[in-house]
């Protein structure tokens, strides 16, 4: 079994709920931590703010939305990938935007995968199932902290 903790970062709780439901449906038993903003994620990763003194799970994978109020997903990605503590954490961008410019930016900043959220339900489910298969096979390195 996989002991990876999946962190969902989306300002839309419905999306987090949909992702979570479908991940569970396709058989993943991983720990799922839903967060609602970029700041929350950074606090969580760098154990600051309300996550102070809360130990980080050993293996983390981040599913990150881009269009969020406050700190955007792009900025979060940049911060994570330029910091020695967090630069190994795999980040999968999962957003509604399919703008090539945006996709390019994300890969340039070091995202590990870019998934467009399909509006169609069955496509969405398929995507999550793909993600699930991907996670089942992927070896995630341990978090350094």
């Amino acid at each position: 079994m996989n002991n990876i903790s999946i962190i969902l970062v989306d300002d839309e709780p419905a999306h987090n709920a949909l992702v979570r439901r479908n991940l569970i449906k396709c058989g993943l038993a991983n720990e799922i931590i839903p967060l609602s903003s970029g700041q929350q994620l950074l606090d969580f990763i760098f154990t600051e703010g309300k996550y102070k003194n809360q130990p980080l799970p050993q293996k983390i994978l981040i599913l990150l939305d881009i269009n969020m109020p406050g700190i955007t997903g792009i900025e979060v990605l940049k911060t994570l990938k330029t910091n020695a503590i967090s630069c190994h954490i795999p980040v999968i961008i999962f957003t509604t935007s399919d703008d090539p410019a945006e996709i390019n930016t994300c890969f340039r900043l070091g995202c590990n995968a870019y998934l467009v959220k399909p509006v169609e339900h069955h496509q969405f489910v398929e995507k999550i199932q793909e993600l699930g298969r991907f996670l089942a096979l992927t070896q995630i390195p341990y978090a350094t902290t």
């Binding site: 839309e12 419905a14 999306h15 949909l18 509604t96 959220k117 169609e120 339900h121």
Partner: peptide
């Protein structure tokens, strides 16, 4: 698109 994803979802 974002709310639409939720609705259709």
């Amino acid at each position: 698109r974002s709310p639409l994803v939720s609705i259709t979802g």
